[in-house]
Design a protein around this nucleic acid. Sequence first.
RNA 1: GGUCCGGUAGCUCAGCUGAAUAGAGCAACAGCCUUCUAAGCUGUGGGUCACAGGUUUGAAUCCUGUCCGGAUCACCA
Length: 534
Amino acid sequence: NFLATQFGTKPPNGTRVVVEYSSPNTNKPLHLGHLRNIFLGWSVAEILKANGYEVFKTCVVNDRGIHICKSMIAWQLFANGETPETSNMKGDHFVGSYYVQCENIIREEMALLKAKTEEGDYGDFSEMDKAKLEALREMMSAIIADNEKAKEDLKKMKEDYNEILRANTPIMKKTQQMLLDWEAGKPEVIELWRKMNEWVYKGFDITYKRIGADFDKIYYESDTYLLGKKFVEDGLNKKVFFKKNDGSVWIDLSGDGLDEKLVLRKDGTSVYITQDLGLADEKYEDFKYDESFYVIADEQNYHMKVLKLILEKLEKPYEKGIHHLTYGMVDLPTGRMKSREGTVVDADDLLDEMLTEAEKKTKEQGKTEGFSAEELKELYEFIGTGGLKFFLLKVDPKKRMIFNPEESIDLHGFTATHIQYTHARIKSILRKEKGDPMSKLESMELLPKEKEHIILLEQFPNILEQAADEHNPSVIAIYVFNVAKSYNTFYAEHSVINAESTEKKQLRLQLSQLTANIISSGMRLLGIKVPERM
RNA sequence: GGUCCGGUAGCUCAGCUGAAUAGAGCAACAGCCUUCUAAGCUGUGGGUCACAGGUUUGAAUCCUGUCCGGAUCACCA
């Protein structure tokens, strides 16, 4: 009887949900970390949809600030009018290369400054920075690093020292000035900023399209970064915020086990948290959501906690619906990815590699006779991109994960390819046996393997619900893999087409059909397509 | 130092709303294609579930402590 059951969705309950994901900076291309974020956010949104929620996907683009100014300055200094077109580069990579160039120069200039300061030459340093550096140097030389505590202190002092040097490099000063000019609306700066961001958006769009990311609304930080200021007034009126003597505005969260937190600088400009407050309000106005998910890495757990606390204290009605969908960072076998050190894995490069590998392995298999060039291209895409998505989605999002390039490219075992292959095999059977696989069957004696598989298939609706409740695509990934495995075991032991009787054949055709349906809908929720043939 | 997260097979991970011999994939080894696609299937070896206490008829799972690893505690975003 259950064979006729429609799988997939609960009736809509009308809950409006916003899922915010991706959130790139415009100074550099997307990388592996973004991919985990994007796949996760997209998938959670689709899972919620499948459970009857009304879902809107949003993205906040961090398009202003010191980071993009770095790209702009380097472009002004070195590009000689070069563009992505003239250099034949993808826009985001093009702009990213200037960011890297700027960072390199900062490093060079820091080394020069360091040498100078060590000889007592403080050039253009402010009196304050000069005093700080001298104090740090004195403390550092006084430390004899023979115990752990001292070593830690020393490390921190070195970092502080470097930060001051960094801020005093000539190119950083230019960058700072450019940010001020941008905020003042200086036309030529704004024009350059627009131009470079456009290049980046074009680049992003190519990548988004490739991986199937889509958004109902994109917010630009340049439009929203001032919105939070009205919160400051509101907070002061409600006595939730307080003003210090220097004019800066704070909130005291010590009652909640946290510290004091700045919400407005003494010069009246807003900080990250202020911007997020404004954006929360804006998003609520736009969507009147019941729930709003922020897909953000776990390094921002503290920030999100503070954000929710402030909204609660300001008695925002939508605060209860805000959830931080936290996920662990992606590490490489060699350690953490750091963009300043150039150890990030570029998203486009990685996708290309996956595709090449898919093509290579498919050719080795030699099963693609009769495929058109178009079909082959699509198949490589399914296997390559799908493999990467599966690799990143199969583990619990909350957990930090290690990205091993060799394992990610593997096509055996707990992988998308294994599941896609199972689907293709089923479809091959169903092409041969048309019939009426969904006709009702008399009850019959079931083999243990048949029974086992049916029980597994019946769990699909519960799995969908569980995945939505936990906001966890890995629940689906694991389940779909188990379904494929269970089918393969069955497949190896019993024939569908040459079944013992016509009834058995009907049953097995139906089971096959259902298995294929569950595999393809499950995989669809992960953003992974399954081929008819492979 | 405070807070939070993690520690399960050689490696990557499930299991963690308590239940019987702790699972999967990879890697290793041994088998299975004249029969629906072998990108598959079957089997073997491999675990003091970080450690120590506690609660319980029963703990990888809950509680406490210790050790190890990571994140965070910015007038950066």
